[in-house]
Amino acid sequence: MDVIRKTAGISPQKKQVNEKDLVHRAKAGDPEAFTALYDAYLSHVYRYVFFRVADDQTAEDITSQVFLRAWEHLKRYRQDGSFLAWLYTIARNAVIDHYRTRKEVVPLNDALPLPVEGPTLQERVELKVETEHVRRAMLRLTSDQKEVLSLKFMAGFSTEEIARHLGKREGAVRALQMRALRALAKELKLEVG
């Protein structure tokens, strides 16, 4: 169980085996196996959602919802694809549902918690400000652009994986990725000297 928690130092094959085993046990109704999956993938889902919503409270709410929905619909998950990719699909739908049912624009939360990393308080504060800045810029991108950037940078998907996940051609994903970064650069008011 611990093996999947620390995925950084293990081979993808071993990770796959453990994920498969955990998913298999979770599908058989083992809550411990499912919470192990939760521990392993909570951060991934949170990061994916984080830059697609206006404040961290919403990001947390949606992240929680993703795992509740995953448990509820676990029997529908077919083990031919990655479990994390399935969670991203649920997360994407949850974000869409959030914007569809939202009655008013949620103001950006200035009380964003400080990032955990960063050796000094000043660095942490700077990172927090930049996080907020990037988030505001990301929110102005189109849904497709946000999606492709979240999958690329937050989920760590390759272009091929993004194409498969979104049902698009790789060429289309590359073009979308370029347009998304151009739009992000514009929103961030980046200039190259």
């Binding site: 951060s43 955990v116 990037v134 940078f153 937050m154 970064l181 650069a185 980046l190």
Partner: peptide
């Protein structure tokens, strides 16, 4: 320009929930 934009978002790939 594109890679600088990418680096801005990539910097947050280790973002963790509280």
């Amino acid at each position: 320009l594109l890679l600088v934009a990418a680096s801005k978002i990539n910097r947050h790939k280790t973002l963790e929930p509280t």
